[in-house]
């Protein structure tokens, strides 16, 4: 087991080291992309905790992302809060929203759970539009550059933005790694695999699922709040249904139930669209075909397929 643990930590710390170095090696354009991808990967990691590990397929995670984004954004724009306090508030908003949704939605399971979360997210999206006088609805608002200063660092600077995104990503990755390797993480997986049996073993499925969902919401909220602060824009499109499906795609592409899968999926999806739109005007077609090919030949995602073919230790 210790050999496995070494390999696991080596791999993840290696990935983090590579990302840290990437800022100095990569051209500005790709470094900028990577900053954005890391933030979105945190969102996808949160989704993965609910879906990949605990088996909760939510179609409403945009609500948690949106709660983080608007929780932070509204406080900065309307109440004049500083970036640090607003960031914390955004993260809390994501978790609180997940708690509220979970208390209701976790009474259902399977497809009903998908639809209930979808509905709650849709209601959240419409609420943002309803308060257009404050939120500017779909048009969104700009977070003032002066307000985007965290602990004295100006987040609108490329290098600082990269390291802020990296810090968030690294923290999220390590916490997640520790989480899934902890006893609680095994209980989450047990819940996915066989809820009845875990109940008989004395676990309370509702509380475990709720806890997983809240952690997932905190991740999504953190990603949302960070996105708004790093890129200066808060808009309703981030709370729409597309942004609920996005992390699902990332996770399924990279490999559900793997720690690095969401990041890999986010990188792939980003460059798939970016490169395809450079080659052809019909880039949606390329993306569609690529998805079909991937799902046909690696239905468990890329890391899922690797895990099946030998890398059994992959967390």
């Amino acid at each position: 087991m210790t050999g496995t643990a070494t390999k696991v930590w080596a791999l993840h710390l290696g990935v983090l080291a590579a990302l840290l170095a990437a800022q100095f090696v990569l051209p500005a354009y790709h470094a900028g992309n990577l900053a954005r991808i890391m933030v979105l990967a945190v969102y996808a990691m949160g989704f993965n905790i609910a879906f990949g590990y605990t088996g909760l397929l939510s179609l409403g995670h945009a609500l948690f992302f949106g709660a983080g984004l608007y929780g932070m954004g509204m406080l900065v724009a309307l109440a004049g809060w500083g970036a640090g306090a607003a960031l914390v508030a955004g993260i809390a908003a994501g978790g609180a929203m997940a708690l509220a949704v979970g208390l209701l939605a976790l009474r259902t399971a399977g497809v009903s759970f998908m639809i209930v979360t979808l509905m709650f997210a849709q209601a959240g999206y419409l609420t943002i539009l309803y308060y257009t006088p404050y939120t500017r609805g779909e048009e969104g608002i700009v977070i003032d550059r002066a307000a985007r200063v965290l602990l004295g660092f100006d987040l609108s600077q490329d290098i600082i933005r990269y390291f802020a995104a990296f810090a968030l990503f690294a923290a999220a990755l390590l916490v997640k790694l520790a989480l899934v390797r902890s006893p609680f993480g095994r209980v989450m997986v047990a819940m996915r695999e066989n809820e009845e049996r875990s109940r008989m073993l004395g676990y309370d499925p509702f509380r475990i699922k709720l806890a997983a969902l809240v952690v997932s919401g905190i991740y999504a909220g953190a990603a949302g709040a960070a996105y708004g602060l790093l890129f200066g824009y808060v808009g309703a499109s981030f709370a729409s249904i597309q942004y609920s499906i996005l992390p699902l795609l990332y996770v399924l592409l990279g490999g559900a139930g793997t720690v690095l899968g969401p990041f890999l999926g986010a990188v792939l999806m980003f460059y798939l669209i970016d490169l395809a739109s450079g080659i052809t005007t019909a880039h949606l077609l390329v993306v569609g075909v690529a998805l079909l090919v991937l799902v046909l030949f690696a239905p468990k995602g890329i890391l899922g397929a690797l895990r099946d073919r030998g890398l059994k230790w992959l967390p």
């Binding site: 019909a282 880039h283 949606l284 077609l285 569609g288 075909v289 998805l291 079909l292 046909l296 239905p299």
Partner: peptide
């Protein structure tokens, strides 16, 4: 497989949309 079909039908969605657009 439920998960895989979701991805596959999302792929299909992109393809059909692009076909209609083009």
């Amino acid at each position: 497989d439920p998960d895989a079909t979701i991805v596959a039908t999302i792929g299909l969605l992109y393809i059909l949309q692009q076909a209609a657009l083009s």
